[in-house]
């Protein structure tokens, strides 16, 4: 397959995955809806990074820069969401401070 044909094939695959996401958004998947949508998005992102941005062909320094960015993003996301999800309910205001609110 010529490089141009390969690029067109990847483009078609990307649009097909987007169509799959759109179709699934009309199906009631319950709590699985978000993980499924993100999983498809990760698949599309993988295709773009690997075939269009050619990260695997880049030198190690560029790969390191990109992986560092993704790693920092993941740490930030996981810790922030874990914080919000595990917070205890705020205590009630003491009676003698209630008038200040």
């Amino acid at each position: 397959m010529t490089p141009s044909r390969k690029i067109v094939a990847i483009g078609i695959a990307l649009v097909a995955l987007a169509a799959l996401s759109f179709t699934l958004s009309h199906v009631s998947l319950g709590v699985a809806a978000l993980p499924v949508a993100i999983l498809i998005a990760v698949g599309k992102a993988g295709l773009v990074v690997h075939f269009f941005m050619e990260l695997s062909d880049a030198r190690a320094s560029a790969i390191l820069a990109f992986i560092s960015g993704i790693l920092l993003l993941a740490i930030l996301l996981v810790l922030a969401v874990a914080d919000v999800e595990t917070r205890a309910a705020p205590p009630l205001l003491p009676a003698n401070h209630a008038h200040l609110s």
């Binding site: 987007a18 996401s21 759109f22 699934l24 958004s25 998947l29 809806a33 949508a37 993100i38 998005a41």
Partner: peptide, 9 residues
Amino acid sequence: FLWPLLYLA
């Protein structure tokens, strides 16, 4: 990533 998070699921 914006599309599914803001429009789909």
